[in-house]
Design a protein around this nucleic acid. Structure first.
Length: 649
DNA sequence: AGACTCACG
DNA sequence: ACGTACGTGAGTCTC
């Protein structure tokens, strides 16, 4: 039976089994109900086996099914405010879009707001003074495309949105995460079949024409109606409403909060690293016997394989020729002293160009901090991504990397708190697969890789060697990624027969994991999609490909997505829970502005807190992360406190 | 614009 | 018979 746990909260129509037949029986139903109730998943609770319909008491707003209607754009004056309020009082859905003086929210002014209410459009210039109450109506739904921008503006003005949110960009993403076309134009075309002109993906256009914004917003309001039906048909409205929409204000605040940087550390680092790079570069030219650009893969390839005639056997080939990627250079490490120099050069140049020299230039003049964007409609699995700058790939693995991470600091009088999930994806595998052997390992609190090695090799924990643990770790990762024996062999450099043997033994011992993977694939091929424990879907058309490579890739995606995606769901719910408690503290000592969530790196949350609050906040965050969802295994989060990000572990 | 490489989970 | 694991964003070179 595939997708067992997924069906706990997501009854999939068309499957050849009923909820009651599922492994749900032996799952702790009560805890699921509690979890759902905590998140107000009323629409999901009723769908549990034996669910109680009386819990379901959401109200369905009336449909506004409109043909194209001419609209009037009304500008701000006293009479029109009255007319606006009157229009608003007759409906529980309205749309809004901001018009800013620039694209960077922190450095621009709010020029105006465009509203669409029913058939009417309104444009208010300089609306700062009066609009607050509009967004405080708890019985209304605010519709918009990329609402985080508007929420940020409002938050900045200390106007918090208390309305329900319906973001058509994120609805589009939830309906099909496999495409990246979630801009307003694409959504309107997809939902309404209507072509609109002009670039509409910009959230805030300098000097945007309010009339044009209103036209688009009207279509967005229509698109939300069709999306709403689709989400309901997908039985995915809980995920949308209770997770994604609730996350918007959380991300908005995180982006506004930003993170402090010790630019002095980076400036010093830049000088030292720059000198080192020059030194290594000179040595490389000397070894090569001629001058060339080490940063050019083409030139480097010619030097290595034509001029120096290094053995190219077994070196991966790309479209343009032999690869010079690090894994390939590693094979040549003993062939020539230039290889090691190139690898050193690469490491330093990468970190210098991507982080050391860039981060100080990104410090916002007004806040003195770095502000990223957390993208909520990008990844195919449900994870967030971070860009401009990407703060989810700050170095940590090398010494220089740790020094860079140490440039991320808490402001004077504050400390950082980092909380990270321990082995969350493997715990999710154990839980989804209901693999008792793996569940027991986690229940006993053992080192999962060591314990896996012990199980595979049939030896006690203390007899597990380094090599055994390393191999077991590789196989554990392989499970998450849908490995084959070729992939595992390549990764671990073990002979293929041995990799095959390892996998065979692994699946003999963790037979429910094997069963789970097979069932997931079976389901995916039949239905064309996979889903997380909470019903987040990913369609995978590659599964039907005639091309072996494409199809195999599809199968690996199908195995990985429910795991990575469920972890993403968990983290999002934890963030909402943490945010809620920070904003509505039960404890007296927690003050609104003294605790800030600032970063999320997939399985890690970073907060900045006023000194003295570390203990309280640590506990709060750890509790939220560990208890937001009850799995079949314990969920563990580790918390640490310090002045610098690089110090936390 | 696309290829390549590499930073992170 | 096939091929070098999943998910991202960004800098650089080349055309």
């Amino acid at each position: 039976m595939s997708q067992k746990l997924a069906t706990v909260v997501n009854d999939v129509p068309g499957l050849n089994f009923k909820l009651e037949d599922c492994a749900m029986k032996d799952f702790d139903r009560q805890s699921v109900v509690e979890l759902l109730r905590k998140f107000d998943f009323f629409s999901l609770i009723k769908r549990l086996p034996g669910g109680d319909d009386s819990l379901h008491h959401t109200t369905t707003p009336p449909h506004h099914h409109r043909k194209h209607v001419d609209f009037e754009l009304v500008e701000t004056d006293e009479n029109n405010v009255k007319e606006f309020e009157k229009a608003l009082s007759t409906t529980n859905v309205f749309a809004c879009k901001e018009i800013l003086s620039g694209t960077d929210i922190l450095n621009s002014d709010l020029l105006g707001l465009v509203f669409v209410v029913g058939d009417k459009s309104f444009y208010f210039k300089n609306p700062q003074q009066f609009v607050g109450s509009v967004f405080h109506q708890k019985d209304k739904t605010l519709v918009g495309h990329n609402l985080k921008q508007l929420v940020k503006i409002l938050t900045h003005l200390h106007t918090y949105t208390l309305t329900h949110l319906f973001d058509t960009m994120i609805a589009s993403y939830l309906l099909n995460s496999s495409t990246r076309a979630h801009d307003a134009k694409s959504v309107i075309l997809r939902e309404l079949g209507q072509e609109i002109h002009g670039s509409s993906d910009q959230s805030s256009l300098f000097g945007a024409n309010p009339r044009q914004v209103a036209e688009e917003l009207k279509l967005i309001l229509q698109a939300h109606e069709t999306q709403k039906k689709k989400l309901a048909d997908l039985e995915d409205f809980g995920l949308f409403e209770k997770v994604e929409m609730k996350l918007i204000p959380v991300l908005a605040e995180m982006e506004l909060n930003g993170v402090a940087i010790d630019s002095g550390v980076l400036k010093k680092l830049s000088k030292d690293v720059g000198e080192e790079i020059n030194k290594i570069d000179k040595q490389i030219q000397k070894e090569a016997g001629e001058e060339f650009n080490v940063a050019s893969p083409t030139q480097l390839r010619d030097i290595l394989f034509d001029k120096l005639k290094l053995p190219s056997e077994g070196v991966k080939k790309g479209k343009t020729g032999y690869s010079t990627a690090d894994a390939e250079l590693e094979k040549l490490i003993d062939a020539h002293p230039i290889i090691s120099l190139i690898r050193d050069y690469r490491e330093l140049a990468k970190l210098q160009n991507t982080y050391v020299d860039v981060l100080p230039t990104l410090v916002n003049k007004k806040t003195g901090r770095i502000h990223t964007t957390f993208n909520q409609a990008v990844t195919t699995t449900g994870r967030l991504s971070s860009s401009e700058p990407n703060l989810q790939n700050i170095p940590i693995r090398t010494d220089l990397g740790k020094e860079i991470r140490n440039a991320f600091i808490a402001e004077a009088g504050n400390n950082l708190i980092a909380a990270d999930y321990s082995q969350i994806e493997l715990r999710i595998v154990a839980s989804l697969a209901k693999d008792q052997t793996m569940i027991d390992v986690f229940k006993r609190g053992e080192d999962i890789h060591q314990a896996t090695a012990a199980v595979i090799n049939d030896v006690p924990l203390e007899k597990v060697t380094k090599e055994m643990r390393y191999a077991a770790k590789a196989v554990n990762f392989g499970v998450l990624y849908g490995m084959g024996s070729y992939g595992l062999a390549w990764r671990t450099k073990m002979p293929q027969w041995q990799a095959k043997d390892f996998i065979k033994k692994y699946f003999e011992k963790f037979s429910s994991v094997k069963k789970y993977i097979d069932q997931t694939l079976e389901f995916a091929k039949k239905e064309g999609y996979v889903e997380t424990l909470f019903g987040r879907r990913r369609y995978i058309p590659e599964l039907k490909s005639d091309n072996f490579q494409l199809r195999s890739a599809g199968e690996r995606m199908a195995i990985n997505m429910p795991i990575q995606g469920t972890a993403a769901d968990l983290m999002k719910m934890a963030m909402i829970a943490v945010h809620d408690q920070i904003r509505n503290p039960k404890s007296e000592i927690l003050n609104h502005d003294d605790t800030k969530m600032i970063l999320q790196v997939h399985d890690e949350l970073v907060l900045e807190v006023k000194k003295g609050l570390e203990k309280e906040v640590s506990k709060l965050v750890k509790d939220a992360m560990e208890n937001v969802v009850k799995l079949n295994v314990p969920v563990e989060a580790h918390v640490s406190v310090g002045k610098r990000w690089g110090e936390l572990k």
